[in-house]
Amino acid sequence: MRVGYLYISFTNPAFFMLLTLGLVFLLFHLVTKKGGGKSVPNAWQSLVELIYDFVPNLVNEQIGGLSGNVKQKFFPCISVTFTFSLFCNLQGMIPYSFTVTSHFLITLGLSFSIFIGITLVGFQRNGLHFLSFSLPAGVPLPLAPFLVLLELIPHSFRALSSGIRLFANMMAGHSSVKILSGSAWTMLCMNDLFYFIGDLGPLSLVLALTGLELGVAISQAHVSTISICIYLNDATNLHQTFFFVCYFFIIE
């Protein structure tokens, strides 16, 4: 579609993002269509309850120094981000589908927008004192310019790190599955007496790698959510986040 000098295209990422949102809304609607779930939950209701219970627990564990009511204000944003990333990753495991999170522009846009929102939260809660994250207390004045620069650079890279991590893991896993699947299919189609023996190795490896990629799809949504909580903790509790940062790198 051409609008003036602009060309607007409805691309595969846009379609599959809308499809993901539609599936999520449909799932939540079917579970809660009668004003609430069943007293004895089925598998779909158990899945929704698991997702709903997971995020508040993560917020309470990773964000310290705030009351429960203040923490729960972050619940909608974190819950939507986790659910969207999880369903996008899992949808990419379906054959002939499209993995939205394997495209860097999509993950970059998501991580950059979250970074801007967290920065605004930091200024809202701490005012201009939020800038003190770049200069720890007790630093000698001659070292201040160097430390400010050293702190600002990694802080700015937070706008990229979450997007790069998610993109790299999903792209690497999907590429490995695609290459090995093509190799297994080629060996399966070989008109040879020993093709059954030759195909068992690649086929078993593809199945194992597919299970591993399924675990990566779930864990990357988890890790991305943890990183958001850590960044929120940094923004709301200045200079009190060493434990959470160490915990995050141990998980990585």
Rank of each mutant, 00 (worst) to 15 (best):
L90W: 01
G117C: 13
I114T: 13
R125E: 15
A144V: 08
F98H: 01
Y96S: 15
V148K: 02
L141A: 14
R125S: 15
L135V: 10
F115H: 06
F74N: 05
F98S: 01
Q124R: 15
G117Q: 12
S132A: 14
P154S: 09
F115T: 05
L105Q: 03
G92E: 00
V100D: 01
L110I: 11
L128A: 15
S97T: 10
F123E: 04
L149E: 01
P142D: 03
N89Y: 00
E151I: 11
I94W: 00
S156N: 13
P145G: 10
L131K: 05
L128M: 15
F157M: 10
F133W: 06
Y96D: 13
L152A: 14
F123T: 13
T81E: 10
L141D: 11
H129N: 14
F157C: 12
F123A: 12
L86F: 03
L108D: 02
L86R: 01
P154C: 10
T83A: 09
L150V: 08
I78G: 11
E151D: 12
R125K: 15
I118P: 02
F75M: 09
L90C: 08
G122T: 04
K73V: 12
F87N: 04
I153H: 03
G138C: 09
L143F: 03
F74E: 00
S113W: 03
E151T: 14
F75P: 05
G109Q: 06
G92S: 07
F84Y: 09
L149Y: 02
F146M: 08
L131A: 13
L120F: 11
S156C: 13
I116Q: 06
H103I: 05
T81P: 08
L150W: 01
A144Q: 08
T99R: 00
L152K: 08
F98T: 00
L108A: 13
S85Y: 06
F82C: 08
L152W: 02
F123W: 01
G127R: 02
S113D: 07
L141V: 15
T83M: 02
L135S: 12
P140L: 06
P142K: 03
P136R: 00
S113P: 09
